[in-house]
Every structure is written in C-alpha cells, then in structure tokens.
Design a binder for these strands. Structure first.
Lengths: 179, 179
DNA sequence: GTCTATATTCGGATAGAC
DNA sequence: GTCTATCCGAATATAGAC
C-alpha cells in the first residue's frame, strides 16, 4: 500500500539515525532530509518526535511483556534457565531497539509507555536470581542483565556466535546458591 | 582560597544536575541558576559546556589509566583477579562519574580526551579474560565489565555491601578456561 | 498527505561594562 | 571575576496553502 510507505520509511530512517547519532543527537530535520520529505510530513505521521521512538521500540517492549508472562508460569527450579534463554533470544532479536532504550534511559522512564518497563526488568531480575531473596543473588542477576545488554549493544559480533557465549557466561554467573 | 570557590561550586552543582537529568538534559542556565551566578560566569571558568563534564570525569579517567598500567605488570595467572578487584574498587569509588561517562557515550567517544578510553577498557577486558584469545572468554569479560558498571550506576545499595557481591559474581563468570 | 513558511522556545556562546 | 544584554543557530512544532 502506498498509504503507509512514507510512515515506514520514516521509521526505517529514524532507526538508522537514532542508532548512529542517538535520539537527542538526531533532529527532525535530519530525519526529514534523509527520508526526502519535510518536517511537517514527519509530524503528520507522528504526533511528536517521542512518538517515533516509541513506535520503534514497541515490538521489543511487547516481547518483554510476553517473556515475563511466560516466566511467571515456570517453577523455581527452571526459571533461571528460562530467563536466560528468553532474555538472550530477545535482546539478540531486538538488538537495535535495546540500544535505543538504553540510549534514552533514564529520560524516558517517566513516559507513560515506559513506566511498566521497570517492573518488567525487575521481574526478569527475579527470574535470573531463581526468585532468591538473597541480595547477593539479586546483584548477580543485575550484573548479568546489564552485562548482556551492554554486549549486544556494543559488540558487533554475529548473533549466532554471540548467543552460546552469552548463555554460558550467564549460567556460570548465576549458579544456584543455597536456597 | 576564595579564588576557586565558584569554580568548585559549579562542578558540584553540575555533577548533581548531570546525574539527575543527564548531560544533554542539563543546560548552562540550569547550572547557573542553581549555583546562583550567570551563564557568563560559568563560561569564564570553563571554556564551554563540555569542559565542565571533562573536568568532572578526569579523576576517574586518571584512575582507569593507573589501573591499566598496574595490570600490565601482573602475570597471566593473577591478572584476572587483579582486574576484578581493581575495577570494582574503581567504579565504586567513582560511581557518579561512571554514570556520567555512560550517559554521554558514544557521543563523547570522539572527544580527544576520550579517544583513549576505548583502548583502556579494551585492556581491562583483556585482563578480565585472563589475556585469553578465545572469543567466548572475551564475551564473558565484556558482560562482566558492562554488568558491573550497570549495577553501580543503577543500584543505590551501599558500596560496602555491593563490593563482595560484585567480586563474587565476576569470579564465577570468569572462571579460567583451558589456557 | 505533503508542502512552505513561520512561530516560539531554548541552547551555547560572546561583548563589553563594572 | 562577575554581571547584563544580546547574538545566533538549532530545535520542535504549528498554520495554512495546495
């Protein structure tokens, strides 16, 4: 459909420029110039600049919601490995989106669409920790979460090669303590 | 000395606001208002806005240089533990500065003062990996580096409590492979 | 749906008096 | 060393024609 071609093109270009120069480092003018349209057209398709970013990260956010829901149904024994596999899959699939989210955090944590992201990652941390209440286990879980995210953002290595290495280090770091 | 009181006050306030609202989210006007002086005074003490941030993170950067230099003198057997202890100490001492550096990265990676930071962290990663050439070991090292940084930035837990938990998870994650 | 033109605000930075 | 006043560019967003 010709109807949404421009809109899609805006998203494509915005993703590229946000990734390269950061959200704040990319202006509507930059996006419009690259798309080959005017700023007004951008703001016809999206209410404001933030809306472009939110549309971009929405699929990843939805995926995170799904993952957390899935983990809720897993027992304490299996939750750690399920969290590891699910999270690694997710961040490798949405590598660019993860980078965007980290780029705009914490400024965007106030956004209505983002205020549940924090609880979602908290639930994920609990999963990594095997639902342990030990602060040391939770610290380990946060290290793994943040570390994996940092690597998929920064490292350009292929996902196929990265995946087993990430899962392996996560398993080692999160060996179950004395429950 | 009354001479440098204003300058110090600028740095103190800037650190606070940069931490709370981010570097780009803080204007010279904001800093000046909080300090109780004019923007012109800010720019009398610092050539431009970037210079304020650079002055703020300089001690942490110097510390990182020292750590990497120290690690160069440690043999392959001991380098992993030395890197862990040294890095955890460093980021806990310069928690706020680490947060600032991550806030402005990658925009600031081009800055002349920052172009060596990348090689420094690369050297640190090599230390975490026990100077192993195995890509999986290097991935693990990057997870640990990024994960520890993420925790000290985000988590508000006391350093005394955090330290042993960080060292423990790092040791587990970086168990030596088959050299 | 897309454009041009513009309103408006805000940012960093400078000039020059005191 | 600090101020007031101002410049200039950039940024988001809007108005209204086509």
């Amino acid at each position: 459909m010709v109807r949404i071609r421009t809109r899609d093109e805006i998203l494509r270009v915005a993703a590229e420029l946000f990734t390269r120069y950061g959200f704040k480092g990319t202006s509507l003018h930059d996006i419009a110039a690259e798309v080959g349209c005017s700023k007004a057209t951008l703001l016809y398709h999206f209410a404001h600049k933030d809306a472009i970013l939110l549309a971009l990260v929405e699929p990843a956010r939805q995926s995170l919601i799904d993952l957390v829901a899935r983990l809720a149904g897993v027992d304490d024994k299996g939750v750690r490995d399920a969290a590891i596999d699910g999270f690694v899959d997710l961040v490798l699939r949405y590598r660019r989106e993860v980078a965007l989210i980290y780029d705009v955090t914490p400024q965007f944590l106030q956004e209505p669409a983002f205020d549940r992201v924090r609880e979602l990652t908290d639930a994920l941390v609990a999963g990594f920790a095997g639902r342990s209440a030990d602060p040391a286990d939770q610290t380990a879980a946060k290290v793994v979460l943040g570390g994996i995210a940092a690597v998929v953002i920064d490292d350009k290595t292929d996902a196929v090669e990265l995946r087993p290495a990430l899962v392996a280090v996560a398993r080692r770091a999160l060996i179950p303590g004395k429950d």
